[in-house]
Design a protein around this nucleic acid. Sequence first.
RNA 1: GGCCCCGUAGCUCAGGGGAUAGAGCGACAGCCUUCUAAGCUGUUGGUCGCAGGUUCGAAUCCUGCCGGGGUCGCCA
Length: 586
Amino acid sequence: MDIFADFGERVRSTIARLGWTAADGTALDLTRVVVEPPRDAAHGDLAVNAAMVLAKPMGKQPRALAIELMGELAADPDVAETEVAGPGFLNLRLSAGYWARFLALVLREGEAYGRGTPGKGAVNVEYVSANPTGPMHVGHCRGAVVGDALANILAHAGHAVTKEYYINDAGAQVDVLARSAHLRYREALGEAIGEIPEGLYPGDYLKPVGEALAKRFGASLVGKPESEWLEEVRRTAIDGMMAMIREDLAALNVRHDVFFSEKSLQNAPDGDRVAQAIDTLTAAGLMYRGRLEPPKGQLPEDWEDREQVLFRSTQFGDDVDRPLMKSDGSYTYFASDIAYHLDKYRRGFANQIDIWGADHGGYVKRMQAAVKAISGGKASLDVKLCQLVKLFRAGEPVKMSKRSGSFVTLREVVDEVGVDAVRFMMLFRKSDAPLDFDFQKVTEQSKDNPVFYVQYAHARVHSVFAQAREGLPALDLSDEGLGGADLTRLSDAGEIGLMKRIAQWPRVVEGAAESHEPHRIAFFLHDLASDLHAHWNRGKDLPQLRFVNVDDPLSSHARLAMVRAVASVLASGLAVLGVSAPKEMR
RNA sequence: GGCCCCGUAGCUCAGGGGAUAGAGCGACAGCCUUCUAAGCUGUUGGUCGCAGGUUCGAAUCCUGCCGGGGUCGCCA
C-alpha cells in the first residue's frame, strides 16, 4: 500500500480521461508527473506537479491545467479538499475514510508493509573485504554496517541480493602474515624471539596461530628454508585470521553469503581466471603495448619508464590506461580485481555495488571502466565510499596509533556500546561525510542520543499497550480487532501527521534502495520517533488526546491502532538496519 | 598539477529540480510542585562558499573559480 503510487495512478488515468495531448497532438510523456508529500503540511496531504510539467508540451498555462485537473479529482470520494497553489501545484487533502482504510491496510500487511514487489533483479553487494592479516579495527566498521544495511534495504525493496566478501589472500601481505606466524610458531616451541622485527605483524592475535602450528607440525618446520613452509603456514594463518574476522562480523550482526578467495582465481579448476580476464580484454581489442607518463606529484623512487601491456580503460572513462602486470611478470591487484568482477558478472550480477573506504577513491573510475569493458557495457558498478569515523569519549578525541598497536578494534567498540548503537550511529550520517562517534553519547539514555530516541519510541508503544490492557480490558487489541476500530475518529493534526509519516515508509525504502543511501532509513525512523514522542507529549496538556483514555474507549481503540502501525514501521525499519526493536528500555 | 568527496543557522548535520530552505544542540524566555518512564513549549538565528549558465522554477543540474579533506604505476 503506497498512497503516493495509488494517487499517481489516479492522476495518470484522469489525464487520460481528460484526453490531454501535446500541442502537436502526440501523446504526452508522463514520466515526470509525480505525486509527492508537500514540504509544508499546510499544503495538504498530496502535491501533484502535473500541470507544471505538462504546461510546456501542451502549450497551455499551468494554473489553467491545474484547475481542470482539480475539477476531476475533486469528484474522487477519497479526496476531501483540493486547491491550486503556487506556480501550478494541485494540492489534495484526503478524506478521513481514506486514511481509515489506509491504516487498516497497514495493520493487515504488518511487517510486509513497505516491502517492494519482488523480482527487481539480482544485486551483488561486496563489503568489508578486509585483509586477512589481523582482527577488524574500528575503521572497518562503517563500511561493514553500510554495506550490510544497504544489502538489507535492497532485499526489502524487492531485489535478490547476495552479500559478498572478497578475501585478499594472494598478495605480498599474506606472505608477511605467514612469516609473522612462523615466528610465533617458533615462540610457541619455546624459542625466545625477542622483539618482532620491523615489517612483520606484531599483534598478539597471531600467538594462537603459532600454537596451532606447533601442535600440528611439532618442530618439523624449524630451520627449514621459507620455500618449504611458507604455503602451509600461510594457509593456516589465513584460516585463523578469517575465523577471527567472521567472529568480529558476527558480533556486528553482519553475515555474508559468499566469501570469495582472490587466490582461487588463479587456481580455478578451469585454469587461471586472471589470465582469462586479460584474454577477454585482449580479444575485445582493449589491450595494447605502450608507455605511461610518470605520475604527477611525488615521483615513486623506483620509477622506471618502460613499455608494457596496458588496458585501454580511458575508453570507458578512466583518466589513464592501466597496467595489469607488474615488472616481475605477476599480476597487479587491479588485474585480479577485474577477474573477480568478471566472475561476479558471469554469476548473473549485472548490478554490482562495492563498499570501499574513501582512501580508495582514486580506484573507482578504473574499476567501473573495467566492469563496463568485461561485460560489453551490460554490467554496471556503483562504488560507495565511506569516509572516516572519528572516535571521541565525552567530547575528547580518542588517540589511535597503528605503530604502537593501540588502534581500537571493532570488537572493543561493540563490546563497550553494543551492536545497536554502533550500527545505528554508523548509518545516521551520509556515508560520504565524515562521522564523529562518541562512546559516551551513544549509550546515553536521552533524546540527544538517536539510537535511544528511536528504540524508546518503539518501547513506548509497548508501554502504551500495557496500560491499555489494564485500563481498557474490554478492547480487542489483536491486529484484527484494531483494524476493526472506528479509524475515522483519527482527526487530530498530530494523528493525521503520524499517518502521513507512516504513509511515506514505502517510498523511503524505495528511495534508499535506488539511491543506495541507507542513511535515509535511519533519518526517517528518527523523524517518525520524533512525531510519536511529540504527539505523546501533547497529551500532557491535553488529556483528551492521550492514546489511552478510559472515558473514551472508541477513540482509544482507534489511536491504539495507529500507534500499533507506528511500532510496526519502526520495527521494520530497525530490522532492515540490523538494529533491535526492544519492548522496554533498561 | 590531475582526479574524487565535501562546503547549508554560532555548532553537528538533513534536504540533492518545486512553493516561505528544515531538525537537533547552543543561546534566550517560559512551563515542569506529576503524570502517559528518562522533561515540555515557544523565541532566536541562513547571501545554501563565490560567479556565470540551463530551466516555467536551482541549495539541488552544468562550467569556472575559492576553501577543506582524500588520492595519484608494480600497496591491497
